[in-house]
Every structure is written in C-alpha cells, then in structure tokens.
Nucleic acid binder design. Structure first.
Length: 715
DNA sequence: AGCACGCCGACT
DNA sequence: GTCGGCGTGCTC
C-alpha cells in the first residue's frame, strides 16, 4: 500500500511537503527519518515528521522520496514535538531547528557538476562566441567543476542564467548528484585518566535543599527549579542531583554559557562521577561532532555538556537539564534559527517529563520573579565575605586612569601582586575626527563610525570588520586627525605604560590570534605579567586567574544602549568581573565610572542582588517590559531604505488591524541602522501574553517580502 | 533559501 | 529586434 510522508525541509517556510514513499523504502521511512527528496531542481535533506495513508488533496502530483538515510530515524517523536514547539515559539523554521540539531555532515545536498559536451568542445575551438561564454567554456576545457567553484573562480555576474543558456544550446552538461562526505579515520578520543574522587562537600542547609529537589526529581515529572546561590554551593548541589539521576538510570544535559567552560567541566564530571561524558559544540571538528553525536544517540554517554546548541543533543531517557549561569545572554541565539536555550530547556524538560534546574548567583530578573511567584526558587544561603569595593567618580579626572586607581595599582605593584583591568571596548578609540572640520571616518557599508586601532594603524568597523589604513591627516581638509571620545583598551594600555614604565603590561582582545591570547593568559598565570587589560572576552575565559586588584573602567557604556535590559547587563557584567578578585587579605576592587550613583553599578558593587532585583523589577513593571509582557522584535533588512520602510509600515498597519492587544513601538531605524550595506528598520511589538502575539503573527509574518529576522524576548 | 518565469532598457 | 537585468512567486 502506498504511504505518504510529510517532510520538513530547512527552508524559511513553515509548511511541510508531502512525498510518496516508494514500496522499496516503506520499511525504512519512519517518523523522524532523515530523507533525500527532490525539491524543485534540487535534491535536499529533509525529515519525516508524519506518515499518512491518504493524500491531503488530490490535485497535486507528489514526488517520491529518493532515499532514506541511515538505518534508524535520527529524531525521536518526543524530540520532534519539542523542536516543533520551540520553532513555533520563536517564529523560526522547524526545518532549520531540526537541521541545526544534527552534525553538519548529516546534511546532504545535490551538487551540480558542470562539464563540456562534445558540441561544447568544438565550440571552444571556433571563434565568435560572446566573451563570457568563451571564458566559461575554455575554463571547463578539461575538467568538470561545481557551480560554487566556478562562481568563486570566474567573476561572472549571472552564472546560473549563463549556464542554463549553454545547457539549452547543448554546449555544457549539468550533472546533478549528491555530495557525500568521505569518512576519514576517526581520531582517537582523549579521555582523562583521573582518579575517581568522591568528594561531596554539601553543608547541611545545602544538603536539605538538594534533598528536597531530589525527591521531586525522583517522581519523574516536569519539575523546574531556580537554584540561587554562589557558584561553589551550586556546584555541590548539581553533583548531588546528578548522582541521584544517574542512579535512576536517566541522563543529564548540562548547559553552560561558553564553549570554553565545557572541557574543564567534562574533566570534573569524569573525575568526580566516573561517568561517561560527551561534549557537543560547534568548535569540534566535523568528524568529532559526528562521533560525539553518535555516542550520545547510542546511549553511551550519560552526561552531556555543552553550550546552547547542546540543547538539541539526541539524548533519550532524559532525567535532568541544568542551565548554569542562567543570567548569561549567550543562551540567546539571534539567528538561523533564533531561539533562547533557557526557554528551550523548559520546553524540552516539559516534553520529556524531566527535571530542570536553572542556576545562578545573579539570576535574570525575569527568571527570579517567575521562580519566586510560582514557588520553585531554591536559595542556597550563606554568602562569602563581602569584597572590598570602591567606586571612583571619574568626572573630575583628567586621565583615563584616575589618581586613586593609579595609587592603588602602584601599591599592588610594589607588593608584586597581580592586577586586572576590565574595559569593554576594543581598539584605541571608538572613532577618529578631524581637528579642523570635524570629519569622522565612517564605514562604507554600515552606518557607524570606524574604530581606531592604533597598534595596527587601522580603522576598523566593529560590526562588519571592514578595515582601512588610518591616515594621520583629514582626507577633506588635510588637518590632523585626533582621537574622539570613547576610549578602548589600547589607550588604557598606553596610559598605564606611561605611568608605570617599569611594569609588565599586556592587553587581551578578540583581535589577537588564539596563540597570542593563550600566551598572554599563560604569562599572567605564571606572574610574568603584572597588569592585564581586557574586554568582556577576558572575563569569559574559564581559566583566568584571580588578581588582588580588579579594576573595572566605565561599566556605564552598556547603559547608553537603547535596550530594556541595559541595567541588568551592566549589573551582570560588573558582578562577573568582580569574581576575579582573589580571596585574600587586602584584595580590592575599584570601579571607575562617570555614573557613580546608578543603581546597577552601586548594587553590583555592594553585591546586593536583592536590591537590584527589586529596583529593576519595578522599572520593568512601570515600563511594561518582560517579565510583565512579551516582546517581539521584527528587523527588516534590505537594499533600499525606502522599500524596507514601506514594508515595515505595511506590516504594522496589518498588525494594527488584526489586534488591539498589541502595542507597537516603531517603526524606527534599528540601533545599527545600516549593516553590510543593508538598511535596517526595527519594529517592536509588545503584548501582555505570548498568545496575543501568536494569534496575529503566525499569519502575518509570512507576508513580509523582504529579509527579516524575528526575535522573541521574555526574559 | 534557490531557482525559474516574466516583463522592461541597451546592444549586435 | 535580442540579451539580460532583477522583481515575483513556487517548491510536494
């Protein structure tokens, strides 16, 4: 009997496509199978999400599935439901989500190989062909090439049109086949041979909390928790819970914000639990990723550690998902597909009837608010000693380094103690300007001033990475260029070197190569560097050693952004940097700022999360921001501002017609109003519930004809 | 997302 | 008059 399969493809359309299953594939084609299907002129990898007996409507002729890839379905049906809900929630494509869940090598596509026909070979020898045709044909003289290669090699504008013309004339032959990745030998997987350590130092209040959680988790129902407490205390609770889940024979998904944190965690798990751990992240080689994915799929790994993308690990029998450092914004993925792994973890845990533990010492206000309201907040009491923190008002200072900070640095240098300086801006200055005519060099493709990188003598666009040599004189009037406001770490480095010429100073930034970064970190670790200056990236290094003076410069830069989370981000950034203070007599933190009284800075400085929370929550309530509302940001992008503007206005009027429950902000130029030559217009929709938005957007979003990205915010 | 189809300006 | 640009719309 003929069966039909609904197949989802990685396309920006929400619908599934129906294919008929040929008799020969009927036993292999199952729900969750990875299949090859003909789609237009191409062959694509898709996923069967449903089988049916009958066609839906009789008027379309259906194509056959070409092939079922792999022996077993790649997705369990509960995984399909989970990803479906996730993509609905974020208005992103289900197919994109499914594709992102697999190692890249699992996705096969047809590749067109172009070669000359006999007639074509003759034609090359003859004269009288148009320039472009001649160029292409002689290039193909003795070998076949892929279209992609030809595109890169020859600079022909409309290659595909040219090719189809030549194919019609019978001069070239286009062979469509499936690109298969050759399997190289598996690299040996290094495993730590560390001795098992059975050290679980749970103090008695933490033990009580952990027991309470464990007894709920034992029931194998969806049970969320927000574990609020210091890193150290959280960790012991995690280990305790993980052991209990392992005893039940269930598996654990452990999410962390940064790939950099995964390796250390894996070693810890292997050491302390003796368990089979798998790592899953995008920086693994393609082959490694495939191997780890297969190990997880086969059930050989019991604990899976990774960043946000590990949310899609093929674990079955899931007992617990941990989302550590819940406040970290890197759980949000803006594009392709757009989702937030924190909400994703909720959806998956719910689907799998598993436990869910968010952990943080400084939770996002929305998470804290919800946890407290719905009664799943678990507090681990007993904070460490308060740190010594001083806020220095920068407004009366002449230099970049205040006199007070310089004095404290001098003291530490004398004692041969290490110093960290954080400043969240790369380069030397955020722009250059002409001392005479005020000309500011801007990026040609983005509507933004170019940052000045003095060491490399370059002007760099921090958004699209466009680079150009920095000229000393104004191209317009020839006067000297001077640095604008907004200093970066290079300027701080220069000034510190001027004040402390004897000391060893280094700057750590994204612009450096990986080996250089590693060298600096190692140098600082060994005490060969006295003062280390760095951006947020430095604060994200897992193995950055602590220092006895942590200086935080101008944390208020984040506050100038038009972002409802600006205060929270500032509070979190300062708190995170403060963690690098050595626990030692005389260790101190100096925050140098022009906004010494802003609550996010003061309360971070006095480590008063609760006060920050209350104040920020109040702001969110007054302004009707999450957690009291849901926001959807729709970003329209296109070549012409006119067209993009018209699209956005049209979209908004349709939203207005469709609902009175949606508040509209904009349309307005996006914060980065032009990126890589594309104009950007932003619209923000605000509603009391997500459903208010869904009711309207599910239909309307498909009618947008320009490139768009949609971001959902509820944290 | 690709890719084909279809309608208007600059060339043999 | 054709070529070839890219706007519009479909892909089971």
């Amino acid at each position: 009997m003929t069966l039909y399969a609904e197949v989802v493809l990685s396309l920006p359309v929400s619908q599934a496509f129906t294919y008929s299953i040929p008799e020969s594939l009927s036993t292999k084609a199952l729900v969750g199978s990875r299949v090859l299907v003909p789609f237009g002129q191409r062959i694509m990898t898709g996923f069967i999400v449903r089988l049916r007996r009958k066609k839906q409507s009789s008027d379309i002729k259906l194509k056959d599935i070409v092939e079922v890839l792999g022996e077993e379905p790649v997705f369990a049906s509960s995984f399909l439901s989970f990803t479906r809900k996730l993509s609905d929630y974020y208005y992103s494509s289900w197919g994109d989500v499914l594709q992102a869940s697999l190692p890249p090598s699992f996705i096969l596509k047809s590749q067109v190989r172009v070669s000359l026909t006999e007639k074509g070979k003759e034609a090359v020898r003859k004269e009288g062909l148009p320039q472009e045709e001649k160029e292409l044909l002689s290039f193909l003289r003795d070998k076949e090439y892929s279209i992609l290669f030809l595109k890169r090699k020859l600079k022909i504008k409309n290659l595909s049109a040219l090719l189809s013309r030549l194919e019609k004339k019978g001069l070239v032959h286009m062979l469509r086949d499936i690109k298969r990745t050759g399997h190289k030998k598996a690299p040996s997987v290094s495993r730590s041979e560390a001795q098992l350590e059975m050290d679980f130092s749970l103090d008695s209040p933490s033990r009580k909390t952990a027991d309470e959680m464990a007894s709920v988790l034992g029931k194998q129902v969806f049970s969320p928790f927000l574990l609020y407490g210091s890193q150290e205390k959280r960790e012991s609770v995690y280990f305790y819970l993980i052991r209990r889940i392992l005893e039940q024979g269930r598996r654990i998904l452990f999410l962390v914000p940064e790939i950099a944190l995964t390796q250390a965690l894996r070693e810890q798990f292997e050491k302390r639990l003796g368990e089979k751990v798998a790592l899953l992240h995008s920086r693994l080689t393609e082959r490694m990723r495939e191997l780890e994915w297969l190990r997880i799929k086969k059930g050989e790994a019991h604990v899976i550690v990774g960043p946000r993308s590990a949310l899609f690990a093929p674990v079955d029998n899931l007992g617990l998902i941990v989302v550590d450092e819940e406040q970290d914004e890197s759980y949000f993925q803006p594009e392709n597909p757009s989702y937030d792994a924190r909400k994703g973890a909720w959806l998956r845990a719910k689907q799998e009837k598993a436990g869910l533990v968010y952990g943080s010492a400084i939770p996002s206000v929305s998470a804290f608010y919800r946890a407290r309201r719905r009664g799943y907040l678990m507090e681990l009491r007993g904070r460490g000693e308060k740190k010594r923190v001083e806020i220095v008002d920068d407004r009366r200072e002449k230099g970049l380094i205040s006199r007070r900070l310089a004095e404290r640095i001098a003291t530490k240098l004398k004692k041969k103690e290490s110093i960290l300086v954080f400043l969240n801006r790369r380069g030397y200055a955020s722009y250059l300007l002409c001392s005479n005519c005020n000309f500011v060099p801007r990026c040609v493709r983005c509507d933004i001033a170019l940052a000045y990188h003095k060491k490399e003598k370059k002007l760099i666009c921090h958004y699209c990475d466009y680079q150009t040599p920095a000229e000393e004189n104004c191209p317009d009037c020839g006067s000297r260029m001077i640095r604008g406001r907004g200093v970066g770490i290079e300027a701080v480095e220069e000034e510190l070197k001027g004040i402390f010429p004897q000391s060893r100073i280094a700057a750590f930034a994204t612009d450096l190569k990986r080996e250089e970064q590693e060298k600096i970190l190692q140098g600082f670790k060994r005490g060969e560097i006295d003062i280390l200056i760095g951006t947020q990236l430095l604060a994200h290094q897992a193995d950055l050693p602590q220092a006895s003076l942590v200086s935080i410069l101008y944390p208020e830069t984040l506050l100038t952004l038009s972002d409802y989370k600006a205060s929270q981000k500032t509070f979190q950034a300062i708190s995170q940097m403060m963690r690098f203070l050595r626990k030692k007599e005389g260790a101190e933190i100096i925050i140098q700022t022009a906004l010494p009284h802003h609550f996010s800075i003061c309360q971070a400085a006095c480590e008063d999360y609760m006060s920050f929370f209350e104040q920020e929550l109040n702001f969110r309530r007054l302004m009707k921001y999450p957690p009291f509302t849901h926001l959807v940001e729709v970003l329209f992008q296109g070549e012409s501002l006119r067209f993009v503007a018209r699209q956005s206005r049209g979209f908004l009027s349709r939203v207005r017609d469709a609902s009175r429950d949606i508040e509209i902000l904009g349309p307005a130029l996006a914060p980065i109003s032009k990126l890589r030559g594309k104009s950007r217009i932003q619209v923000i929709l605000k509603a009391k519930t997500k459903k208010d938005l869904d009711d309207v957007l599910e239909k309307l979003l498909q009618s947008i004809k320009v490139r768009k990205s949609i971001h959902v915010f509820d944290l």
